[in-house]
Design a protein around this nucleic acid. Structure first.
Length: 259
DNA sequence: TAGCCGTGGTG
DNA sequence: TCACCAAGGCT
């Protein structure tokens, strides 16, 4: 559950599934992952994106192996103390991994609540405490049923109450939906700015890392030079990869994934 | 807290 | 074609 939630942070389910299957096969226990080399972890992560998540998962596995008896903790505070684990991931593990009654708020749930409960076309900016309270009010008292409802809320948002074209015609909560009752008014609040990608450091970092990932051993600087034309931007991005621990420079000047 | 961090599918 | 979007977290 923890591995899947890491992978699902900002990455669609269909792309995660095959990687998750192979990952769990290779590293069935936190201690196994903790013992792996970061280079192998980054290669197994493949092109899921945001590769810092892979390093954080690896670091979380180290903590779990060393401090939690090789068992993912069930306690929210202990979970959130793990690198790469925020409010959403901690709560998802508690609810779906341990069957606890624990409000899980992700982008899907926020949208479902915004529509079905508040009658808005979409969720505005996150209001963490209020969002948790909204969802808490929807959960049954007992652990197991609450966990089922939490999963249902996420699924509803992912499959029916989607961002672009909600399938209201087949929605199981249509009769109780405040947005439907209000005539499905369009969302008028602030939109989160769309992230550009082409030409950004993110794209360049991705290109550089792809070169390192695709090579069995260290690569010459020239191989990285070929990955992006703008030398200044390339150097800046390579440096940032080194700083982030996603790449290393060897004594001979060549570059590689971290050991 | 707004902006950054990858990648690829889609309407 | 190209915004927009996808089960966030960190600083």
């Amino acid at each position: 559950m923890l591995v899947s939630e890491f992978m699902l942070q900002q990455t669609p389910v269909p792309r995660v599934e095959p990687v998750w299957l192979a990952w769990m096969q290779q590293w069935p226990l936190p201690s196994a992952l903790a013992a792996a080399r970061r280079a192998d972890v980054l290669r197994a992560w493949g092109k899921l994106g945001y590769p810092r998540r892979a390093l954080r998962l690896h670091a979380a596995a180290e903590v779990i192996a060393a401090e939690h008896g090789d068992v993912v903790p069930a306690d929210l505070d202990a979970l959130e103390a793990l690198p790469g684990v925020g409010s959403y991931t901690a709560r998802a593990v508690a609810a779906f991994g341990y069957g606890r009654r624990c409000p899980v708020v992700d982008t899907n749930v926020r949208r479902v609540v915004a529509r079905a409960v508040h009658g808005h076309g979409d969720a505005g900016p996150a209001r963490t405490a209020a969002d948790l309270a909204d969802v808490d009010a929807l959960l049954p008292a007992a652990d197991r049923p609450a966990a089922v409802v939490s999963a249902g809320l996420m699924e509803l948002g992912a499959v029916i109450c989607t961002a672009r074209t909600p399938r209201c015609g087949i929605c199981p909560v249509r009769a109780a939906c405040a947005w439907q009752a209000a005539g499905r008014p369009e969302y008028t609040g602030p939109r989160k700015p769309v992230q550009t990608y082409a030409g950004t450091d993110r794209q360049v970092r991705g290109r550089l890392l792809d070169v390192l990932r695709g090579s069995d051993g260290p690569v010459e600087r020239a191989a990285l030079d070929a990955a992006w034309g703008d030398g200044a931007q390339r150097d800046r991005c390579l440096d940032s990869l080194l700083v982030d621990g996603l790449a290393e420079q060897l004594d001979d000047g060549r570059f590689a994934l971290p050991a």
